[in-house]
Design a protein around this nucleic acid. Structure first.
Length: 803
RNA sequence: GGGGAUGUGGUGGAACUGGUAGACACGCUUGGCUUAGAACCAAGUGCCGCAAGGCGUGGGGGUUCGACUCCCUCCAUCCCUACCA
């Protein structure tokens, strides 16, 4: 009588053994290292399905690599600063620190119940002074390296709550709590010169083993474009407006200039012009997010001012447009309605001149966006766009009205946040002049809150800010992307209180495989890459890139939508772990979709995963390994077939784990192997050769499945008693010689459609194949009396008769 | 608005290099076991059709002996868009 599969008991039992033996703690040794990192979570309270998926993928690969004798480092920690803690603190009248720590405790328990093979001895949390002390030091070093500066920049301002709002806190232009109309407000903030690294961030993408779509997104985000800086002189004034354009070939089609509402000239004009002033006020009512700006109706106002075209010397009107960004280019665009969709729309709306200066073979109607031949452009007529651009730039240089310029879309990184729950920026102001806090005075520790007081921005905590006569502490905190831009490096030395990085950092970096959600494809990954390069240049880390290989997992969806609290479609992983066990949840997650794709949650499929583990249990439990010498055995056809299947499956699974990360097909292959074991092999009094082949299949199945369902495999491995090692201590080898088949199924097509199939020995000549295939009944009726024009033969696979 | 993906049975997905579309599962149907149910076992299951056969990978077009796969075009959904993480 077999015992029932009891995941709760097994998982507790096995996890206790892992804990007491500290098997997952890593130290430098002689083996090849493998640093496997999953994006650390924000401690929001409970693990969600996205986490479970992410961390299972990382764990499967870590366990597989460990079986391949790699020295694996897989740490876990907490991205613990951020907005949700402040919101929860205000809502529930709790301290953000206590709230966060409580969440971490809960989530850590959940992670442990999943049986993830983390080295918990290196756990870190970004809200600990022992972590952010070093972040403050990095900022200071970046400052010394000339990468830090101060600049005015726009924020969403809630005039009622008197706070700065994040984009997600602005709903339909109103503050989410106060409901007040949000305003754009300019304030002084700290910036880091990521643009100094724009070219390198772009160039070194090529060599990365990252998904092509992520590299492409980063490339487009950095947005290097070659163009020209073109100067327009104001009429009756010495003043000059400089524009940037990627299409200097269209310069004869310019019919207006458009200024950003935040451009100094716009503000100057507004001082004496009521209409312009009202327009600028209207622009302030929008939201800072780019997506909202782009969706908003394109509005403009004529300033009445004119500029002189640098070549034709025609007078052009200067407008202010709500769609012009001050941060990109020069904050002035030259409007070419004939050859730019947005300018066209704008010109139509305000009845501005539209001129054609480019001719295209494919399209007659304006706007023509593609490049072509110039028309209506004086001496440049007839040139193609490329040549004309070069010559026009040359002309502009000659007359001192412009030059060639390479521009990046990438902007410098504003790191100031006007909040409480973040890393304090280590700066002191003496008579308004900023000074970096001295290294020996770090960390600047976040002031404690009393239990019941709501968090306030640091600026409203006088004890923290006021240090004496005309001496004040900086009251902004860092963007939380700062915290997550270097944690991958600190993990290697997180137990070192004396140094930021040490010899372990040298050994473990770079991260060999980084796993996380596709939603981080641009910001987090770009900031981390920048940090790594900047840290390299100040001598703190080695290498050019932090993450050698990247795996971006898709979202976990329910009813086609991202699981989220606001949609009320979340599924709590804990309930499933308790009901079915961690192995089932892990198996389900890996089986349901390939990692890069989104995963649609389905309750009934979980049941299926559980069923499979029960089958594995039924096959192995209460069975003991028996030793045979293969030379004493006579293998029959079924034996050979099962051996072939076992070895072929091992080869496929290895490829799926290693190269493709296709865990779903690996599992399907293991299922197939299990299903293919004949019933007669499982009987107690079966032949020795059957027992031998069954034994091999069982060993392979437990080994192959153990990265995904480690508890049940470890437990069964111990019971089976093949050897006294743990199931994850070695990986079996397949025998290539066993894989070949003597026969194959020939597919016979007529005009590309399958009309017959026949089993043949391998290596038959094409002539013979043609003869045999054309005689198959259904094939010969389809050929009928027609001549075979030609036949295409794919060796040992397919023949196609074309008639 | 811009950038990046995705689209295959009732459902999740497979088809890795242009060569059998639907592996492996879920669900469903029928039968067995059972007092009954659950669980389990066996058979079947893309659609239309009694069958022969025809149709079929979001829609339309193209390249090819052959297209889920390559090209063009249109549609739908999702992610990112610099202060959510």
């Amino acid at each position: 009588m077999t015992k029932l599969y009891d995941p709760k008991f097994i998982e507790r039992n096995i996890q206790e053994k892992w804990d007491s033996s500290k098997v997952f703690e890593s130290k430098i040794d002689e083996r090849e290292k493998f640093y496997c990192l999953s994006m650390f979570p924000y401690p929001s309270g409970k693990l969600h399905m996205g986490h479970v998926r992410n961390y299972t993928i990382g764990d499967v690969i870590s366990r597989y690599k460990r079986m391949q004798n790699f020295n694996v480092f897989q740490p876990m920690g907490w991205d613990a600063f951020g907005l949700p803690a402040e919101n929860a603190a205000i809502q529930n009248k709790v301290n953000p620190k206590n709230w966060t720590n409580q969440n971490i405790e809960n989530m850590k328990n959940q992670l442990q119940s999943l049986g993830l093979s983390y080295d918990w001895s290196k756990e870190l949390r970004t809200c600990d002074p022992s972590y952010y002390k070093w972040e403050q030091l990095i900022f200071k070093k970046f400052h010394e390296a000339g990468l830090v500066y101060r600049k005015k920049s726009l924020v969403n301002w809630d005039p009622v709550d008197k706070t700065v709002l994040a984009n997600e806190q602005v709903i339909d232009g109103k503050g989410w709590r106060s409901g007040a109309q949000v305003e754009l407000k300019e304030i002084d903030q700290w910036f880091i010169k990521i643009t100094n690294y724009a070219d390198e961030l772009l160039e070194s993408l090529d060599a990365l083993d990252w998904p092509e779509n992520v590299k492409l997104m980063q490339k487009n985000w950095i947005g290097k474009s070659n163009g020209a800086e073109i100067k327009y002189q104001l009429e009756n004034s010495e003043k000059i407006l400089t524009t940037f354009s990627t299409r200097p070939d269209t310069i004869f089609g310019v019919s207006f200039l458009a200024l950003s509402p935040n451009h100094p000239l716009s503000i100057e004009i507004a001082e004496n012009n009521e209409k312009v002033k009202n327009f600028l006020n209207l622009c302030k009512e929008s939201k800072a997010a780019e997506a909202d700006m782009a969706k908003a109706e394109k509005l403009g106002i004529d300033t009445g001012i004119k500029v002189i075209h640098p070549i034709t010397e025609k007078k052009l009107p200067v407008w202010i447009g709500n769609f012009v960004l001050l941060e990109y280019g020069t904050g002035v665009v030259m409007g070419v309605p004939g050859h730019d969709a947005r300018d066209y729309e704008f010109a139509k709306k305000y009845d501005l001149n539209i001129e054609q200066v480019i001719e295209s073979e494919n399209k007659g109607e304006l706007p023509i966006l593609e490049k072509g031949k110039l028309v209506n452009s004086n001496e440049f007529d007839g040139m193609d766009s490329e040549k004309a651009s070069a010559e026009i730039i040359e002309y502009l240089i000659k007359v001192n009205k412009g030059s060639a310029l390479t521009q990046f879309r990438l902007r410098d990184w504003g790191v100031s946040r006007q909040r409480y729950w973040g890393c304090p920026i280590p700066v002191i102001y003496k008579n308004g002049e900023p000074e970096m806090v001295h290294e020996k005075d770090l960390p600047v520790v976040l002031p404690e809150l009393t239990e019941d007081s709501s968090p306030r921005p640091l600026s409203q905590i006088p004890d923290f800010v006021n240090l004496g006569d005309n001496i004040q502490r900086e009251s902004d905190t860092f963007d939380t992307f700062m915290d997550s831009s270097w944690y991958h490096a600190r993990f290697t030395s997180s137990d070192n209180e004396k140094e930021i990085f040490d010899k372990n950092t040298k050994y473990w970096l770079p991260v060999d495989l980084y796993i996380g959600g596709i939603e981080h494809a641009i910001l987090h990954l770009l900031y981390s890459r920048f940090f790594h390069k900047a840290l390299r240049d100040i001598g703190m880390v080695d290498g050019d890139e932090p993450f050698k290989r990247l795996l971006t997992q898709g979202m976990v969806l329910k009813d086609g939508a991202k699981m989220s609290k606001s949609k009320g479609n979340t599924v709590d992983p804990q309930a499933y772990i308790e009901k079915y066990g961690a192995d089932t949840v892990r198996l389900y997650m890996m089986f349901t979709s390939p990692p890069e794709q989104s995963l649609e949650w389905s309750e009934s499929s979980v049941e299926g995963a559980s069923r499979f583990l029960k089958k594995v249990w039924a096959l192995v439990s209460n069975r003991k390994f028996e030793l045979f010498d293969i030379n004493d055995l006579q293998l029959d056809k079924k034996d050979i077939e099962l051996r072939r299947k076992s070895h072929a499956t091992l080869k496929k699974v290895q490829n799926d784990y290693e190269i493709r990360f296709a865990f779903n097909t690996a599992i399907a292959a293991i299922m197939e192997l299990l299903n293919s074991i004949p019933e007669s092999f499982k009987e107690e009094d079966t032949s020795d050769s059957h027992k031998f082949c069954l034994n091999e299949a069982i060993i392979f199945i437990l080994k192959m499945l153990s990265p995904i369902a480690p508890h049940i495999c470890e437990y069964l491995w111990r019971e089976y008693q093949y050897d006294s090692q743990n199931v994850d201590s070695w990986w079996p080898e397949y025998n290539e010689d066993l894989l070949d088949l003597e026969e194959f199924e020939l597919i016979v097509q007529v005009n590309g459609k399958v009309r017959g199939k026949i089993i043949l020995e391998k290596g038959v000549s094409q002539n013979e194949i043609e003869k045999i295939a054309s005689q198959i009944e259904n094939v010969s009726t389809h050929i009928g009396g027609s001549n075979i024009k030609k036949s295409i033969y794919v060796k040992d696979k397919l023949i196609n008769f074309v008639i």
